[in-house]
Write a protein that binds this DNA or RNA. Structure first.
Lengths: 330, 330
DNA sequence: GTAAATTATGAAATCGATGACAGGTCAAGA
DNA sequence: TCTTGACCTGTCATCGATTTCATAATTTAC
């Protein structure tokens, strides 16, 4: 593992000159530049990353936080983010919050220690006020989450609209008793979606029942579980469900069919994310299409803009469009 | 962002003393230790990560390579690895090879630059000889992949056995014409699985046809595509398929049903990975259960053992068990 | 032909920590 | 009293790069 000193010695020049070659500074004679490059090649030298980072005060590392890395939506987000970051020579490390505030704060400490240059929050567990102090240490960007006042770039979907659209679709299909599943009440984004749901209901003078709203809907297993609960409801059951994700929808549908419901006859279900799974269940799943990879890529682009151009971080909300994709489950 | 010097000055001690407090060295008087800790707390000081890393020659960063981060199996692997690494205060960064040799070599350069302390290969794109030189720079571990001679810890599933078991199950169900889908022929692990498949066939004197073997089977869409190809086969079609993953199986099954096949009557399908999706298709998918999160955790444990205990890296193959889970698709 | 500007190079400080070494204090033992 | 060793603390070199500043060499301008 050769160092810049050894290269310098072999070339009979100073380390500054080697450094200049490395960083494409002008004011290096063509002859020396070629010689240095030759030796670098010959010795298979690469600059020591930590040393360079210490001097230039950057780690070329970004962090993404997600609740869990194995949810298809977040896996897709990680894919997009990693892909884009790599193009700009940044690395990406993945943090899972598991819905836990402490884990998120641990992540913030990485920013404080300059272990990472910036953070993409794919989830938000803490109150914003607990996050805000870390903004001094480096840029933070919110992605797939929303906050009313946070002074950072926010990239998210138009959740109100998608919620409204989904529910209106169910209403157009003749449903009046519509339930709602969502991941966590802690998420502003999910609450916007819920507002869309509620707004569509009230615009059409439809009833709204507390017990038709299901929290903690994340995975296929959650879908199975929730359907069981619906089945055993003593009072009125919903005839349609707007589910938090396609995974949940798949679980709901499967269990509904198992329990003898006809889908969409007795129970219509609409998913979210428009993942491939929508196409392989029976019936196939009507869903809300979102462009997750694009969201991830854009997040990196914005974050790096702040980082490389030293732009001050400012609040800037970008709503990504969503689209209804109708299939058999509604 | 205070430094150790500022803390030292405020405490009226030397930086070494602060460093000793930081690193829990003995030989610091209780009085000073308390005072230093108080000031550290008060100033909200945390050690500069790059500076420490430069001195101690470690980055506390591990890298995992996967073909794509959004495949459920690899997403699960990333989850397990991240989880375990976090417990040992290591960070994990994710690299996607997209089945491309160059990307994998880029990753190796990170090891060479000491940007990461070690690498977990969840995929292997290059010839081992091209990877081997980097072993001098830091530990590499193979996870979910196999190689005949590589002198590194290898954690993988008993793919031969699982392949054999899956096919035997199909044979026991009365099938004689059995096809095989797999991800990539470049993977030793997948080739072991294929050997299991071939071995089961020959042990039962069953035919083997080149055109029943499908490469590039990774996602749901691949499953849909392959089923179309099978449907249009001019000659004899398989009556059972051993598919590379549950995703592929789901696609195969859906398209088979769409095309009027009865599953498992006309076509039996067995998946791999035993993911939740197995439970929501119609019919549900018989699969091979594997413990992916456990695999990821174990990989980190082994790698860190080499790292912290300075153990020399040595070849050590660990085969994780797999289990057949029978459902409706066979 | 000299001043000024441009180009090229090296010495040394610096980033923020760690750790080898030296030196000092103090109590126990000879 | 003197030695010995345990305990405590500070000085300074170091990790491997970048960068400022000084200076030398060369070209351009007048």
């Amino acid at each position: 593992m050769p160092t810049i000193q050894e290269i310098a010695k072999l070339c009979k020049v100073s380390t500054s000159t080697v450094s200049r070659v490395l960083n494409n500074h002008p004011y290096v004679s063509e002859k020396i530049r070629r010689e240095v490059l030759r030796v670098i090649e010959e010795m298979n030298y690469t600059p020591h990353f930590l040393a360079r980072g210490l001097r230039t005060n950057s780690s070329k590392l970004l962090a993404v936080s997600v609740p869990k890395a194995d949810h298809p939506f977040f896996a897709g987000l990680i894919k997009g983010i990693s892909l884009q970051a790599l193009e700009f020579n940044y690395k990406v490390c993945v943090f899972q919050t598991f819905y836990c505030k402490e884990n998120e704060l641990e992540l913030m400490k990485l920013l404080q220690n300059r272990e990472v240059d910036g953070i993409i929050l794919g989830a938000l567990e803490n109150m914003w006020d607990d996050i805000a102090p870390y903004l001094k240490r480096g840029p933070i960007l919110m992605c797939n989450e929303f906050h009313e006042t946070a002074p950072v770039p926010i990239l998210c979907y138009n959740e109100f609209e998608s919620g409204y659209t989904a529910v209106r679709h169910l209403i157009e299909r003749g449903h009046r008793d519509i339930g709602f599943c969502f991941d966590t009440a802690n998420s502003e984004a999910q609450n916007m979606r819920k507002k869309g749901y509620l707004s569509a209901l009230s615009d059409h003078n439809l009833p709204y029942r507390e017990e038709w709203i299901f929290d903690g809907a994340f995975s296929i297993l959650d879908g199975l579980r929730i359907m069981n609960r619906i089945h055993h409801m003593p009072e009125k059951k919903p005839t349609a469900l707007f589910s938090g994700s396609d995974q949940v929808a798949a679980g709901l549908i499967k269990q509904a069919v198992n329990l003898g419901y006809s889908v969409p006859g007795d129970l219509a279900v609409i998913g979210y994310d428009n993942q491939p799974i929508c196409r392989v269940t029976t019936p196939t799943i009507t869903s809300i299409d979102i462009k997750v990879e694009q969201l991830g890529r854009e997040a990196v682009t914005r974050l790096l803009a702040c980082l490389t151009e030293e732009l001050p971080l400012k609040r800037e909300v970008t709503l990504f469009p969503t689209a209804l994709v109708v299939r058999e489950s509604t």
